[in-house]
Simulated scan of single mutants.
Amino acid sequence: MPVLGQLQNLTVLRLLANSYLGEKIVCPPGTFEGLEVLKLWMLKDLKNWELEEGAMKKLKELNIRCCSKLENIPIRLLEQGTFKDLTLTNMPEKFKQTVEMNNPWEQADGTQNGTA
């Protein structure tokens, strides 16, 4: 991840089925500067994701699918002004509830922009 994070022209990153085997992803400040779309699919060992201030500043879309051990989405990510679309597919109900509870862009009618 540290090497990928330094690729300034990287706009889309898809980590699919066992392409990342670690339990934790850490994104230090200044990494993934141009990233706009991130897809995390079927990463069976991923438990934790840390996003430090200044990382993934341009992320607009996040898609998480079948990452059953993942415990969190960084709050910092959800609070960024550029973030627009979150899709959760085949994720544990507890995970979805945690995300909904921390979602700063919940609409007045109780629906959420992009959360499935």
Score class of each variant (00 low, 15 high):
L62S: 13
K58S: 12
M42H: 08
I73E: 08
A55P: 04
C66S: 11
R65S: 13
L40A: 05
I64P: 07
K58L: 13
N63K: 15
E61S: 15
K58N: 14
G54K: 03
K39Y: 13
I64M: 08
S68A: 05
M42T: 09
K39S: 13
A55R: 03
K44E: 11
A55W: 07
K44M: 07
W49P: 04
C66P: 00
K39C: 05
N63W: 15
L46A: 02
C66A: 09
L43Q: 00
N72W: 01
N72F: 07
L59C: 03
N48G: 06
L51F: 01
S68T: 04
L70I: 05
N63A: 09
E52L: 14
K44V: 12
M42W: 08
K60C: 11
E53T: 03
P74C: 10
L62G: 10
K60A: 10
E52R: 13
K47M: 14
R65C: 12
E71Q: 15
K69P: 00
N72Y: 05
E61M: 15
P74Y: 09
N72G: 08
K57R: 14
K69E: 02
K60S: 11
L70F: 05
S68F: 00
L46E: 01
M56A: 15
K47G: 04
K57V: 14
P74G: 08
K58V: 02
